[in-house]
């Protein structure tokens, strides 16, 4: 589903974000991306959803070479991905249901189908009763669930989560994480960037650790890779 081959990313100011990153994520996997702030986790996710382009190397998602996609092709790729962030990125002037429906509206889905699918996904994340609430009326955990509902509403094959529990208390973290596991159990690939090691240790999921832009550990290899020097 996801394949990175010798990916480098250097910003115009000379900062190196990724160094020779290569790995493969198979169908149905749940992968943790771990590492300190600035290790390159977010940049790596941005390459996957075509927000940034690699300086060299190849990024493939669902069979597409992401760096070769242009304009509307990028939009179509993103419709097959679900993306969630630490800061939720909800529209403050829309209700939970409208935020979810928004992701369907931009794809040109039929109006009658939109409402039904939005409420079904909100029910899936446990927020059926709060569909008319505005983001400011919801807790952090609930806002993240709305963001997850929005990410799921297009039935994505891959869910990318950038520190989804970074702003949540322990209880909300557990709820959101359980939801991610349920989504993965349904067959969706989940790539979750986090620095919450407690969460990582609770499970047997594959873990890729990054340091200074390089992959220094991949539990799939069962052997630590050499660090950058």
């Amino acid at each position: 589903m996801i394949r990175l081959s010798h990916v480098h990313k250097t910003f115009p100011n000379g900062a190196v974000a990724l160094r020779d990153v290569s790995f493969h994520v198979a169908r149905g996997e749940f992968v943790f991306l771990t590492g300190h702030s600035g290790a390159g986790k977010s940049t790596l996710l941005k390459l996957l959803y075509a927000e940034q382009r690699p300086s060299s190397g190849e990024v493939r998602v669902s069979g597409h070479v992401v760096s070769a996609l242009k304009g509307d092709q990028i939009a179509r790729l993103r419709r097959r991905l679900g993306i969630i962030f630490q800061d939720f990125r909800l529209l403050e002037d829309r209700t939970a249901a409208e935020n979810v429906a928004f992701a369907l509206e931009v794809t040109g889905a039929r109006k009658d189908a939109i409402a039904a699918r939005a409420s079904r996904v909100l029910a899936q994340v446990g927020l059926a009763s709060k569909s008319r609430a505005y983001p400011r009326e919801l807790s952090g955990g609930e806002q993240q669930r709305v963001a997850m509902a929005r990410a799921l509403v297009n039935d994505p094959a891959i869910l990318l989560a950038d520190e989804p529990t970074g702003n949540l208390d322990e209880r909300a973290t557990r709820g959101v994480f359980q939801l991610l596991r349920d989504i993965n159990a349904g067959g969706t690939v989940v790539v979750m960037a986090t620095h919450d090691l407690d969460l990582v240790r609770q499970t047997e999921y594959r873990t890729i650790e990054m340091r200074e832009g390089a992959v220094v550990y991949d539990s799939a290899d069962e052997a630590p890779a050499p660090g950058p020097q």
């Binding site: 959803y49 927000e51 304009g71 509307d72 939009a75 179509r76 790729l77 993103r78 419709r79 993306i83 990125r89 529209l91 928004f102 992701a103 931009v106 794809t107 040109g108 929005r150 297009n154």
Partner: peptide, 16 residues
């Protein structure tokens, strides 16, 4: 800007 950013993330085309 925030709304447009989110629109792009959820797959809105530039013409949309």
């Amino acid at each position: 800007a925030r709304e447009i950013h989110i629109m792009r993330l959820v797959g809105a085309t530039n013409w949309f």
